[in-house]
Write a protein that binds this DNA or RNA. Structure first.
Lengths: 134, 134
DNA sequence: TTAAGTGTATTATATCACTTAATACACTTA
DNA sequence: TAAGTGTATTAAGTGATATAATACACTTAA
């Protein structure tokens, strides 16, 4: 499927992963990047389900996970909003980043790469990407 | 489940991932690290299934993937052996490492980390791990 | 008061990936 | 010939994912 904007959030849905995980990750990303401001409203369960043409229960599952992570708060009858706590977002961002790095280093370790090799390789790849976009 | 050795390969199986993927990754790791030498025999489908107490079909699936990656070769009636091509193993190792790094950088990008932040963060984490084991 | 829009819960159904099970066949080696 | 290889087939069960159809409690604005 192609990219789609609902509110200020970009969605790119395919079949490589569970739908609820993709929704979760993409909203989470928008919050972490500040593309949705603190305290701002995100689409309602029904609206997002309608726009993405998927079942409301599937959206619900993603929204429950966001709330469990402390990234959103619900207000009955009003909707779902990004947390107002800048600290909470920043903490979550760092925790997730730490998990990503640990998993990555474990993968490289499983291939027998030394730490100096990993450091050099990452630096090289980052330089390649820097050429593309700042 | 706890660690288990079959032949020269360490297996650590749990329920967090499909069984065939875990077998695939762990044999692949042993090959990449050189813990199983080039041309060396790996356990037969039936033997490994028996030792791990899982179905032979599940082991088969992992073995077919190893062969598709060019890491192993089968000899009818004899068994399955690690490829004799050092170059093939090294190429695969680099390709997989590249995939790991690209996926990792995409994850960090989705959290809004700048490349300089990523480089610094990885270096810090590597230093922490270096303290543990060279 | 009413209607529309919120999040939430429930029950049922369908599909698919994964795994097991039981066999059978072709080949190699001792 | 017997035992050990990889391989293929058919059948069945389980769990995660997703859909469908409702219903309820709450909030807001008309």
């Amino acid at each position: 499927m192609q990219e789609q904007r609902i509110g200020s959030i970009r969605f790119q849905i395919d079949f490589s992963q569970p739908l609820y995980e993709q929704i979760l990750e993409q909203i989470r990303s928008a919050i972490a990047k500040g593309e949705i401001g603190l305290g701002q409203k995100i689409p309602s369960v029904r609206e997002l389900a309608h726009e993405l043409r998927i079942n409301p229960n599937t959206v619900m599952r993603a929204y429950q996970e966001l709330e469990r992570d402390g990234l959103t708060e619900k207000r009955r009858g009003q909707g779902t909003f990004v947390t107002s706590s800048k600290e909470r977002v920043e903490t979550f961002r760092q925790e997730l980043a730490a998990r990503y790095i640990d998993a990555f280093l474990s993968q490289m370790e499983s291939l027998g790469y030394s730490w100096s090799d990993v450091a050099a390789y990452v630096k090289k790849k980052i330089d390649e990407r820097s050429g593309e976009r700042g």
